[in-house]
Amino acid sequence: MARMKHQIHLRIGPIMFRIGSVWAGPVKLLNRLYQAYPRPAVAVPDFTVRLEPSSPLRRWIRPNIDIRGDFMLPEAMPLPLAHGILAAEMAMNLQMALGQRRYLLLHASMVERDGKALIMTGLSGAGKSTLSAQLGERGWRFMGDEFALIDPNTGHAHGFPRAISLKNEAVEVMQALIGASDRFGPLLTGTPKGAIRHLMPGPDAVERMDEPARPALLLFPRFGHPPAIRPIGAAEVFMRLTQSSTNYITLGEAGFRALTQLVHQVPARAIDYNDTASAIALVEQTWAELA
């Protein structure tokens, strides 16, 4: 039987992971991409993740990785070993999406300035991940490109600043902005989401990842339309956020309270944009007016 010979303990924001792997490769790459993160070896992790072959033969022949751990989806597709870092990322996301009970989880990217958080959520392809990476290079603190964690007791937003998962066009956009840098992981091609390259967030994102922020602005960006800022009603904001939350229903009344409080207290806008420059300008404008 394949044993978890290689392992790494990682803390990302308030969440601790134990990741075990049958192969050395994925853990080596995680070690590089997450070199600046705390390694709480002497702590009980929130979640355990296993990177192992879908069948014993697949350890050696056309090796592939099944995404397994404390929480699993029965129909999850295995990934080739070459995409190991993506498998690790998806496995961590899955633990959060299915198992997180302490925070209200919003599928959103988040950046911070002056102790206040800008939360961006939208459909896949809306550009929330790229936008947060862009802002992270422009004086904002990057707090995460996947999940915003809302503490139901305080209403504060906690970051989950994992390595940023750049997809397709976003890879070149960020390479042009940052230049050649050892902050980039390897380029993965032919993944279920197209080309993917990971980017280590800037140093302040990791150093300050334990600092929560007060949610100050909710944006629903949309790519591919002429620049515009549109108001959006509280009821629609609420509905959209319930759809973007993976654990709203499971948290029951606590989830409802946290979400209604967020919608009542935080201004929201929809923004349309068609290039990076217009997006940044719209963000800065709405932030100056509302946050």
Partner: peptide
């Protein structure tokens, strides 16, 4: 972790 389990359990 056990509190998380209780939350999940109640649901």
């Amino acid at each position: 972790r056990l509190n998380d389990a209780r939350t999940a359990l109640a649901h």
